[in-house]
Design a protein around this nucleic acid. Structure first.
Lengths: 333, 333
DNA sequence: GCCGCGCCCTAGAACGTTCTAGAGTCGAGG
DNA sequence: CCTCGACTCTAGAACGTTCTAGGGCGCGGC
């Protein structure tokens, strides 16, 4: 008695309880149309036979899948946090999530194709890298919500953080601490890099500090931050805002190895509030995205589209917040 | 025109191509029984109508699901790496993966229940925390492979790292560097903690260093490592092996704040080769699990069971390897 | 001329659900 | 006694596939 012996089905339960299949279905769904007595009895039998509904059959018949497909990337620190939020949000409104991961050897197209076969009702894409055209083709088939990427198409919903505002927060914080010579290490060609860079520029201008502005090209990874740090060492500012936390740690490391005290000589602000930035070792001041709100809104948008809400481009931009930790302090200069 | 218009089905393609539904099914599956000419024509029509097979219906009918359910935890550094490996392994042998995540607010039971409803053919559990009894109940229903946890049941396959050996490697490395006073910070009640602790004890004994052995109770998190560090400061050893990387970073931080040089005064070895341990900042010598091999074997085991291999408990124990980075050096004592 | 065989194809029954339409039963109201 | 409605329940048709049986048909061998 190992693998064989088909799983128990509605028919098994019905036979055992001496009622029709349809009635068991009604009871299992909690739908109206069964007396309290039979309901009780059927449930008892189901429990005894260890009945598990077959979602394939269920979904097949009832068209409506109440299933959201989520594409996420492994090793993206806050994708995990986002997943947590998405599960919560989906459960709250009675939807299921089905996940498909993007890995170093499994690209986004593959991940999406898998979900399409599962006939999920809508797609939530975390930081999609595919082209706008591909997104469009997808949106023609089912509702699509893009997170953390700005897509200007009326058939695609967007939920993202106000990255410009994130850099405003960072710069404001530094200015309040007395800093004037504030540099920015950007994210190169990464998603959202342009917007964060522009946010930095605007914030500096607002404080009348354009003259002190300096932008160093960086990237997503630790080495990018390290490289930027070496560039900055020629003529160090008193503070620097960095594209993301990973890059910021690379930068921090080079600074410390050169005997530059953080935050004594130089303050550093990251972006993302990645889990490692909380480590006592790193203790990075950073800009945190409001993950719970983003997740809730993404699910809500997807469901609205599924329920046939009119197709108009809606972009939801969530304000981030600053998390002050140990890498920022008063300007010594 | 939003969601409407049922997706195209086999019947649509069949009608358009002027053949029977069954024939289209044959062509789509690449099964034998269709002439090259019709095959070509049907494929062309399918492409034109943008036909996508419905995996629900497909699986429902064909019993065989070629679907592996994977339960993983968010925010576990190497679960992500493992997922990558599992996708590779599954793809190589033509299986699909369906994921279910354990989050802070979604427990393992829920995650598993979701997969059962999807009728996957087998379950791969990453570091399952549920009881042996629960695992047993599961195994009665479908093949179950547990990774990174030792379960002594003949109906459950186990793929895990030889954790004892991992600590042998760590201790050997330290001894080779001249260390004798080597302490161990354990993982408290966490999975695999007992085995790593025992590995440490055995290795010390093998080197005739029982007298120098010292075990401090720790845990999974950074604070656990920090706490252990404060205990060790009373009478510092020259080297420490720590249950995992996270705990090791907590320990490192306290050490450095107390002006203890690493590895000058004290060498530290972690466990897991978590992604953050590669950060230049942390640069932790650590024990790495052979993720690719583990993933490949886990998938292979699951598939063998699905294909009806006899049910005998098979435990596969993979040797880990040491990754030497910057937190270990010659003993000064 | 009949049989058997291989090839291409098709009809129709599964799979385990949900849904629609309707069949019994009971009690109240005429 | 009949009708009606409310309530419980059931039969049987979906859903989109795959699978099992078999139907033509052309061809070679008796």
């Amino acid at each position: 008695m190992t693998v064989e012996g088909r799983r128990t089905t509605l028919a098994d339960v019905a036979a055992e309880a001496g009622v029709s299949v349809a009635l068991v279905s009604i009871v299992m769904r909690g739908a109206p149309g069964a007396s309290a007595a039979t309901r009780e009895r059927v449930l008892e039998v189901a429990r005894r036979l260890d009945y598990q509904p077959d979602s394939r059959a269920r979904l097949l018949r009832s068209g409506q899948s109440r299933l959201l497909g989520v594409v996420f990337g492994v090793q993206h620190p806050f994708h995990d946090d986002l997943l947590t939020g998405l599960y919560d949000a989906a459960e709250r409104i009675g939807y299921e999530l089905t996940l498909s991961a993007v890995t170093p050897r499994r690209d986004e197209r593959t991940a999406i194709a898998g979900l399409l076969q599962d006939r999920c009702a809508a797609l939530v894409l975390l930081g999609p890298q595919i082209t706008v055209a591909e997104l469009g083709a997808l949106a023609a088939r089912l509702p699509v919500v893009a997170m953390m990427r700005n897509v200007r198409r009326r058939d695609i919903d967007v939920v993202r953080t106000d990255d410009a505002r994130g850099l405003h927060l960072a710069v404001d914080h530094l200015v309040a601490l007395g800093h004037r010579r504030i540099a920015h290490v950007d994210g190169g060609r990464w998603l959202a890099s342009a917007e964060r860079r522009q946010g930095y520029r605007d914030a500096m201008k607002r404080h009348g500090l354009e003259a002190y502005g300096k932008i160093v090209s960086g990237g997503f990874g630790e080495e990018d931050g390290a490289r930027a740090a070496r560039v900055l060492l020629d003529d160090p500012p008193t503070a620097v805002t960095v594209f993301n936390d990973l890059s910021a740690t690379g930068l921090l490391d080079v600074l410390r190895r050169h005997g530059i005290s953080v935050p004594g000589d130089l303050s550093v602000v990251g972006y993302d509030d990645s889990s490692f930035s909380r480590l006592a070792h790193i203790d990075l001041t950073t800009v945190a995205q409001d993950i719970e709100t983003m997740a809730t809104l993404a699910v809500a948008r997807a469901v609205e589209r599924i329920d046939g809400a009119p197709v108009v481009h809606r972009e939801v931009v969530i304000p981030p917040r600053l998390v002050v930790r140990g890498t920022t302090g008063p300007s010594g200069a």
